[in-house]
């Protein structure tokens, strides 16, 4: 993993054009192309998010690509097993930079319910394999949760939040 494309590509460029960069980031944040990468239960909620009721397209992230070469967002939706880990890293490295990762659900965050003493097959957190930008807890998270995660990622990319936050009342 150390030799992967990630480290080299995300190094700061020598010359930076602040305004151009800002505009580009705005464009990137509002047209994220996620990869069709369903692992387990959370993938069904990811599909629900893409469908009519929750409509992820409202935030510009509705174009699910089957190929990592065409996508810039990997939503790790489910449990990553040790057998799957090399594939996941390969997929991540195949994505063109700049790229982002959302860890969706408890399994992707920490192994979730499958991290117990004596377990032999589950990677306890996808951040052990690839750098993660946004964590969405839940088992599985609701589609609203995924949408909120997407806005958080947008905030991370551009530095500002486009949509208002809901104030907690408790």
């Amino acid at each position: 993993m150390g030799k992967g494309g990630f480290y080299l590509e995300t190094k700061d460029p020598i010359i930076k054009f602040a305004v151009v960069e800002k505009i580009l980031n705005l464009a990137r944040a509002n047209s994220l192309w996620p990869m069709t990468f369903g692992l387990a239960c959370c993938a069904i909620e990811m599909m629900s998010t893409a469908m009519a009721r929750f409509d992820i397209d409202r935030f510009g992230a509705g174009i699910f690509r089957a190929s990592p070469r065409q996508s810039d967002l990997m939503i790790v939706s489910g449990t990553v097993t040790k057998k799957m880990a090399p594939t996941l890293v390969t997929l991540y490295e195949q994505m063109p930079s700049p790229k982002w990762v959302i860890a969706m659900g408890n399994c992707a965050i920490s192994g979730g319910p499958f991290a117990f003493e004596g377990q032999y097959n589950v990677v306890e957190g996808v951040d052990l394999l690839v750098p993660v930008d946004v964590y969405i807890p839940g088992c599985p998270p609701r589609p609203e949760g995924l949408l909120e995660g997407l806005m958080k990622l947008e905030e991370k990319i551009t530095g500002t939040r486009r949509f208002p936050t809901v104030e907690q009342k408790w």
Binding site: A40, T79, T81, M84, P113, F114, G118, Q119, Y120, N121
Partner: peptide, 22 residues
């Protein structure tokens, strides 16, 4: 086996109630 999550192993480590969400 790309999503083998050890349910049968977990069952042996948990009580009947604890296995309910699995």
């Amino acid at each position: 086996g790309y999503l083998h999550r050890m349910h049968e192993k977990m069952a042996e480590n948990r009580s009947y109630q604890q296995f309910l969400p699995n």
